[in-house]
Amino acid sequence: MNPTASPTTSRSLAMKRIRPGRIVIWTILFIGGLLMVTPLLFMFSTSFKTAAQVYDLRLIPAAPTLDNYIRVLSDGRFLRWFLNSSFIAITVTLSNVFFDSLVGYTLAKFRFRGRYLIFIAILSTLMIPTEMLVIPWYLMSANLGWLDSYWGIMFPGMMTAFGTFLMKQFFETIPDDFLEAARIDGLNEFTIWWRVAMPLVTPALSALAIFTFLGNWTAFFWPLIVTTSQELYTLPIGLSSFAVEQAIQWEMIMTGAALATLPTLLVFLLLQRYIVRGVMLAGLKG
């Protein structure tokens, strides 16, 4: 029972013989990586170019300039959209973390009539494509006066079937003893969920939070439909409106896009560990 034994052996094995298969795989991965990174690099590169240089495809701009950034950031609208996106993504993420896990926990740990039916009903919504929902959402928002409001943008995502399903699967792995011990100690059901069950599923929670945040940060379709006034645009909508406003200004679009990408990149870099684990968990469990 030596936990370090097997990784050590496999590593030394890998070092001993580098098989041709490996070389092929690494090459494919390298090319794949390059294909993924190139557009990103061009985006950053273009954001440092002047309008005249945009079609000069050198990766390192001949005369790098910060003018684009100064122009974008001094345009109050960009900051506004950035804040809109942040507010919406954060609110929706918090809401999902809270409600998805609350419902998931209830479905996983309580026996009540109709439990299975509710679970199936929630799951079945996963089979309806967003495109089909957009019109009902729109009509509903129009009737309720939610068009062109933060709530209008956010309400479809405040809870998700996938998040509920994910959290249910995780709460099911918690032994009942953990919860019953707390029950005997006198905690009420809400506190048991919050103080005992939630800390035990933090890997799943972080995965859910990361995916929800990123999904909402980059959301385009629904925010585009539901908003009309510029003050309510999210960053992706704002940037696309940038693009069509006048003659297409690629260097400005790329600057905005680069700024919009920063939080995403930051999330990935800082939370890499959780994301990898989250993808694995979601893959295994979901």
């Binding site: 032994p175 003893d177 953990f178 019953e180 011990a181 029950r183 005997i184 800390p199 035990l200 933090t202």
Partner: peptide, 20 residues
Amino acid sequence: LDPKTRNIAMVFQNYAIYPH
């Protein structure tokens, strides 16, 4: 009565102590 008002304590097979 609820478990908490019975004034009993219980020890479980898998200990039920919290890893966090």
